[in-house]
């Protein structure tokens, strides 16, 4: 059996690219879930992490949330939510709640740790210049914590993407459907489809991670300043302008 040829044939089959179970529809579903949950998690976890980090309290909480998050299986949370009474059940709400829950721990911990690792000297200097607490947070701590914060968002994005793939086991949408359909099919297990689905998910996850790694680099004010000083060529890159809001 030539698996490679069969997988190629699966990708070439137009039937796998159309309809409600086609790759485009599942992909849009998958990315939609990922983006929505990530956005929600950022909106919740970043302010909390900034406040905890700024005041220096609650570090224990941030670390514990992260540890417990690792121990709770995605599948368990999804299954419990599906069996909950309305408005949960098998709804978009259940999916969003589960995905957001899994995105919060990495963002919260990284934001907190990023804030704590900001040079105390820089904070003291900013205070000495007469900056208020909020100004210190916005103009000194946040830009310096940005690389770690972005790293947390990157971890969360990859994690949510993986979680959405698993959600298909609990009969949610997304690219995981390709896998569950391949295992649960009438004609036995479709190995070619399994590999194809796994490939699509794997390649996309790596691509998302790489994209966010670039974004994280762009958000690092120290590295950016160094780049701008050492070569003027880098300034022409569009990514360089994207993250400058924090410093302005």
């Amino acid at each position: 059996m030539n698996v490679v040829a069969e997988v190629a044939a699966w990708f070439a089959d137009p039937a796998n690219w159309s309809g409600s179970a086609g790759i485009p529809v599942l992909l849009v579903q998958h990315l939609g879930y990922t983006a929505a949950a990530l956005g929600l998690a950022v909106a919740l976890a970043v302010p909390l992490g900034l406040v905890l980090g700024h005041t220096g309290r609650g570090g224990f909480l941030a670390i514990q949330v992260s540890n417990i998050g690792r121990a709770v299986p995605t599948l368990a949370v999804l299954t419990i939510l599906v069996l909950m009474p309305p408005p949960f059940q098998r709804s978009t709400l259940s999916a969003l709640v589960a995905f957001t829950l899994f995105a919060i721990p990495p963002i919260l911990t990284n934001t907190y740790v990023g804030m704590r690792e900001v040079d105390r000297g820089a904070v003291d200097a900013a205070r000495g210049m007469g900056m208020s607490g909020l100004q210190v947070l916005r103009r000194v701590e946040l830009p310096l914590a940005a690389p770690l914060l972005m790293n947390g968002v990157r971890q969360a994005a990859v994690q949510v993407f993986a979680t959405v793939s698993i959600a298909a086991i609990a009969a949610f949408g997304g690219l995981g459907r390709i896998l569950t359909a391949a295992v649960g099919g009438v004609g036995g297990t479709d190995v070619a489809q399994l590999i194809a689905g796994a490939l699509v998910i794997a390649v996309l996850a790596v691509a998302i991670d790489a994209l966010l790694a670039l974004a994280a680099r762009a958000a690092d004010p120290v590295a950016r300043a160094r780049r701008e000083r050492s070569s003027s060529r880098v300034v022409e890159l569009p990514v360089d302008h994207a993250g400058q809001g924090g410093l302005a």
Binding site: S165, I166, L179, L194, A198, I201, A202, A205, V206
Partner: peptide, 21 residues
């Protein structure tokens, strides 16, 4: 790094041709 990024569910199935279910 790449392996860590690939979701576990995909990792499982990429080894199916070698090991079956």
């Amino acid at each position: 790094t790449v392996l860590y990024t690939v979701p576990s569910i995909a990792l499982f199935f990429l080894v199916v041709p070698m090991l079956g279910l």
